[in-house]
Every structure is written in C-alpha cells, then in structure tokens.
Amino acid sequence: MPPSPTTYRSTEVAGRIVVGVADIALCDDPSAIVVTYALGSCIGVSIYDPVARVGGLLHFMLPESKINVEKAGQTPAMFADTGVPLLFKGAYELGAKKERLIVIAAGGAEVLADDGHFKVGSRNRTMLRKLFWKNNILLSADDTGGSISRTVILRMSDGEVTVRTKGKERTLWPT
C-alpha cells in the first residue's frame, strides 16, 4: 500500500494537505484536512470512501491532454482526462471501492462575456461529466459555473466537503 498521504506536489502545512493547481493528494489519514484554494475555471474533484476512510482531491486546469502531450506526461493532474483516472486509481490502491465513493466537483467558472470562444470552465465541466458517464460514476454534489472563486475543503474523518467563497463557507456533502 502506498504511504499516506500520497501526493504529487501538495504541501502539508499545520495538518492541512494543500493541493496546488495541477496537483493531486490521496489520503487515508482520518485526522487530515485536504484543501485546494482558489478554483477559477479549474475544477476540484473530491472523492471519499466512508468505509475505508480513504479519499483524494484533484485540482485540474484544462480538459484535454492532447493540447500538450509532453506536459501531460510530466504533470498528468493538469488535465481532466489524465488527472481523473490517476485520482481514482490512487484511491483504489489505498483501499477505496468504486461503489462506495462519494464524488464531488467544484469550480469550472468562466470569464465574463466569453461568447463561446474559449469556455475553459464549461469545457472542463463537460469533460468531467463525459469521463464520469463513461465510467458509471455519479456526482453526489457539485458547485460549478458562474465567475466566482471557490476553495474546496475535504475532511478525512467523515468525508465532509465544504466550499468557501469570499470568506463564506457552505457544506456540499453531506447534503
């Protein structure tokens, strides 16, 4: 079993595992808090198995790795199509079971008046849904869209996920 927490570039500060942009953290330490700050068009995906008390958080930036295959090889968490499989495989290696996973997504915001030219946040949301649909994964909760910044916090003791915007927190799971 891999050591816990298993992270790629995350840093642990005062009991908090901080997941950076284009980064993943996997964890089976029930005392840990896993957090990713300031999601804009990026999406944070939180997964948690309440029986095994194993979870993880991914902060991906762009939908498809084909835009920069070389960088995707070095930093798979940058893209949805390479980061999401890594998140789930990592959790399974720590003992999580797919059928028990609580999956939550937040972020995917847009700049104003995009007029469909770029839609980075929207394309991130679409790619995530496509990946989940193909793999029979249901989202337990999501908080996506708009133009706001979001911080996502996963509490490993019970899987509670909160989202913070402009200093105000609300619980996404349990609902």
Binding site: V21, A38, L39, V111, A113, D114, S147, S149
Partner: peptide
C-alpha cells in the same frame, strides 16, 4: 486566470476584449 493564478475575491469577473 485560466491557469488559476492570483484568483481572489475578484474571481473571473474580467472580460477578454474582442
């Protein structure tokens, strides 16, 4: 902004000029 840099209370409330 799309790279997730320096996003604060202002979020993504900016426009790319056409």
């Amino acid at each position: 902004l799309w790279a997730g840099l320096a996003i604060g209370y202002d979020g993504l409330q900016y426009k790319l000029a056409p």
